[in-house]
Design a protein around this nucleic acid. Structure first.
Lengths: 187, 187
DNA sequence: AAGATCTTTTGATCTATATCAAAAAATTAT
DNA sequence: ATAATTTTTTGATATAGATCAAAAGATCTT
């Protein structure tokens, strides 16, 4: 919980009353590798803070799993489209390792926003940051070759190759597993 | 100005005092086709509301212009990455037609957010909507063929083919102009 | 209206990466 | 440890879409 509070105070100042409400509304959950936190067609009910572990969201394309993003320690994860719009998600959220998470429900999130302008600012800054990341990412990656994408990977997800299997990374990069294998072999 | 106020009241309730501040801080500008509102390496100072006209943001890749998004009537446009982070932009903003715009500066935007919680909510909902659009878009487009992308275009930018030249659309879709020409000819 | 310039189309060829198939290596279970 | 399963690598072949070049069609300019 301490790390989550620290994460929030990077963006806003928290008074004691808000701090205690955050402690009430975020609840800790411990998960095992390959546990699924959200399935496609469900509406994302929770926003999660990752204290420990790694997760990804993925969807199916022609029967195959495609990783759409990886999330590591000290990050917030949900299906952004679904959480913000409260429409059914097109993607799944899955733990890639055993995780320690803190989650808040959509309704409690709205409650904190209504009650604490500072928390509203946190929520705004969080989605502004997400917009900026997605904006920058989608534009800077679209013209890269398979090899260039692989080289860029570490800037977004440090050491991810050591934590998740090749097929997930290849699907994230939008290339086949065989091509990624050949790139790694330097061919 | 009436249409801008209507746009904002889709998301929040405006009291008279906020209304008058919005009228003060958004200023009308009329631009000509091919006028440039932002250049790469500048930091985005303004957020624009489009009352009339069409714009795009674009960047250069290997010497060629690449459109990264199109914006039409009743939408808000800026370089999201740059406006939110106040870091230099990697893209340009250009008018594709003569436009009627209303713009607010970054500092006035922050001022309205600080002074009016309702406006803070507007700003939050706007970036949540941008996050949702970018999230959904980047995932749903990445595995489409050139032809499928062209078919999807109209859902995002109705009738855009009638308003901007082929090369811009091809660059947005990430395909060559020749390929798009062949797709249109049904080959 | 004629010429100049810009935009789109068509044809021929090339290439990065996909796909299919099978071997090798690594991991997990008994 | 050995077998079973999963993951990664390697080889051979196919293909969507790129690139290059030039013709055709539009749109501006004087």
């Amino acid at each position: 919980m301490h790390l989550l509070l620290k994460k929030i105070t990077e963006k806003i100042t928290i008074n004691p009353s808000l701090e205690s409400k955050i402690q009430t509304h975020f609840t800790r959950i411990d998960t095992k590798k390959s546990e699924q936190l959200l399935s496609a067609n469900q509406t994302a009910k929770y926003l999660y803070y990752i204290e420990k572990g790694a997760l990804h969201n993925y969807y199916y394309h022609e029967g195959k799993q495609v990783s759409s993003w990886f999330y590591l320690e000290d990050q917030l994860i949900t299906s952004w489209y679904s959480f913000y719009s409260q429409e059914p998600s097109f993607e799944n959220i899955e733990c890639l390792e055993d995780c320690t998470l803190y989650r808040i429900s959509y309704s409690d999130y709205q409650l904190l926003i209504d009650e604490f302008p500072a928390f509203g600012n946190f929520a705004r800054l969080l989605s502004e940051e997400m917009t900026a990341v997605l904006d920058y990412f989608s534009k800077s990656w679209s013209f890269l070759s398979a090899k260039e994408k692989y080289i860029m990977l570490d800037e977004y997800f440090p050491k991810i190759e050591l934590r998740v299997k090749l097929g997930y990374i290849a699907s994230f990069l939008g290339i086949s597993q065989e091509t990624l294998s050949r790139i790694r072999a330097g061919k």
